[in-house]
Design a binder for these strands. Sequence first.
DNA 1: AGTGCTGGCTAATGAGATTAGCTTTCTAGC
DNA 2: GCTAGAAAGCTAATCTCATTAGCCAGCACT
Lengths: 190, 190
Amino acid sequence: MPRVGLSPEGVVDAAIALVDEEGPAVLTLAAVAARAGVATPSLYKHVRNLAELRRLLTLRVLDELTERLTTAALGRSRDDAVQALMRAYRSYVVDHPGRYAAMEQAPDPDPRLQAASQRLLDVILAVLRGYDLAGADLVHAARCFRSAVHGFAVLEAAGGFGLPEDLETSYQRLTAMVIGGLHPHPPSRG
Amino acid sequence: MPRVGLSPEGVVDAAIALVDEEGPAVLTLAAVAARAGVATPSLYKHVRNLAELRRLLTLRVLDELTERLTTAALGRSRDDAVQALMRAYRSYVVDHPGRYAAMEQAPDPDPRLQAASQRLLDVILAVLRGYDLAGADLVHAARCFRSAVHGFAVLEAAGGFGLPEDLETSYQRLTAMVIGGLHPHPPSRG
DNA sequence: AGTGCTGGCTAATGAGATTAGCTTTCTAGC
DNA sequence: GCTAGAAAGCTAATCTCATTAGCCAGCACT
């Protein structure tokens, strides 16, 4: 039997293609093996087990996302940069909803994942530092940013927005809300 | 063998207790059966299958959440109500992170689930109507609210906020951000 | 041509979901 | 109290999938 020439990256490629096409629920070693043209046990020559494959998948997605965010933020600052970041984030999710939904949520002690999360966070922090934020305020702002953006992403990727109103418009409102939250607040009228 | 006196509700109770204690990953029929003191196949007398159990779990969580939000919003309006809603939402997640994380995300055609989602949405819409929002604007506002609140909830329930800064403070900032987004915007300074 | 590593395979084990079919416990009605 | 039938449990069996063990061929380098 001719060798397929698989590699850890190739296995992740197959897994990514799979979840892109059929959603995160069908991510099994059996399905990945079938798509890679190989028997299931052969995958173990490249990845330790299913959990590891999930981890590598998450890593890949985090890196792709960071790449897009970095590119989008380059040469921009403050509101302009926040807007670019948010646009880039959603464009990734819209382009690859299955991939985004397949990402692991639980915190993972794997240092590669920690590093990837940190890189993603760093891009966000770099942009937020453009406002006069420091220390704890910067952390709180980053959490607010992530909550809004990730919340929208999860809901959209999972098909959680049922109504027909335009999602692009909703996202613009969300963007305005986030940007508004980064500026000093006028007195509220209740 | 004496009957355990199980019921669909009892099975869901066991599943809830399980995910509360050990997280969403261990939700299997085998584990639920063990906790209920019954052999795995016996569960099929009460729920059609694992997917159905997940659905019932989600339904239960949605209803509990709606109950809390409804109580919190009663007698309040506008910023006061939004604040109460958000506080109640997070308190539920903090009280039962496993339960929240175990909820199904994918849209489900089951009419019971659709109805439960609608009830939850209705509470939010009722509060947001206190601002001068109508039609599409109301929908966009509700989506922003859900994104922020659900995003924070998911990240917190999954342990996604690694840094030591106070989460309560972060959530207050998020609340301020959401409320700010519901008021007319002052001109931005970039 | 020879050797060793590597990637692929088959066989086997074990968990978990699901189905079939049997048995026992309640409950209602007599 | 006695019994028929439904309901609720159980065991046995099947299927899918993850994982491990152990075998064999292709490839790289001598």
